[in-house]
């Protein structure tokens, strides 16, 4: 495995690209001309003050904005070179390939096993019960939850602690073998110990999945990511190697934010 330093300096291997993306909610523009590449081998962090559009932009990457009636997206976003807003793109497939983990853990009110099995089942990824068992175990292991729950897979997912619930949600996303995982402030509802576990997990998952994490916590961005994008008022102010952004920001707005002038 590469060291943190080496990882940071590896050349970009873009998994998703966005070009001149505008997002509108009704008449209000939420994202203005954002262009960015999401790297396959690196964890990308979106930072910025609240209301800057980082979560909105994240949701355009798997078209979750489609569920908001008034939302409209302009520009081009590609996954492996394919425009995800093209009519030929199937949103069901897209979301299976680009998984998402939400701010607040949202396990379904079903058993732990059924939570993990939900995605493979709707997408028909396992035909036999034995196959499903393998997927569930593999996903829970990757989510670092297997040892804690292997004896109580039939208990409700909502009975777990907050941190465990969030790891269950990560496992649920992993179970459909996505290529990209989007995380929308995954630790904001968790305590420091649970947060540390999730951060460790992100570290483990890097390289296997392209990971984008939205966070308002700059220390977290510095800890888990190799690429950082700074959003402000719906625009992308600066994007680059994380260590550069934090030690030597090019834009004044980035510096002011990082040094705590506003936020």
């Amino acid at each position: 495995m590469l060291t943190e330093e080496q990882q940071a300096l590896k050349p970009n291997n873009p998994k998703m690209t966005a070009r001149d993306v505008n997002v509108f909610y009704g008449a209000k523009q939420a994202i203005n001309k954002v262009s960015i590449d999401v790297d396959m081998d690196n964890v990308t962090a979106f930072i910025g003050p609240s209301g800057c559009g980082k979560s909105t932009f994240l949701r355009t990457l798997n078209r979750m904005n489609d569920t908001v009636a008034s939302a409209r997206v302009e520009g081009e976003i590609t996954l492996d070179g394919e425009n995800i807003y093209a009519p030929s793109m199937d949103v069901v497939q897209l979301r299976a390939r680009v998984g998402m983990v939400f701010q607040k853990p949202n396990p379904f009110p079903k058993s732990i096993y059924e939570n993990i099995a939900y995605g493979p089942r709707i997408h028909g990824l396992a035909s036999a019960k034995a196959d499903m068992d393998v997927i569930v175990e593999k996903s829970l292991r990757r989510a670092g939850l297997w040892e804690e729950v292997k004896d109580r897979l039939n208990e409700s997912g909502t009975a777990l602690s907050g941190g465990q619930q969030q790891r269950l949600c990560i496992g649920r996303a992993i179970a459909v073998e996505p290529e990209v995982i989007l995380m929308d402030e995954p630790c904001s509802a968790l305590d420091p110990i649970a947060t540390a576990k999730i951060e460790e997990l992100i570290h483990e998952l890097r390289g296997r999945y392209a990971i984008v994490i939205v966070t308002h916590n700059m220390q977290q961005a510095a800890r888990v990511s190799q690429r950082t994008a700074f959003f402000h008022l719906g625009t992308l102010v600066e994007y680059g190697v994380t260590s550069d952004i934090f030690t030597n920001p090019k834009a004044d707005r980035t510096r002011d934010y990082i040094t705590g002038r506003y936020g």
């Binding site: 979301r95 939400f102 379904f108 996303a173 459909v176």
Partner: peptide, 13 residues
């Protein structure tokens, strides 16, 4: 709403 989002984000119709 988070339940609905969670399911839709997995690629469910």
């Amino acid at each position: 709403q988070a339940m609905r989002d969670g399911s839709l984000a997995m690629g469910a119709t």
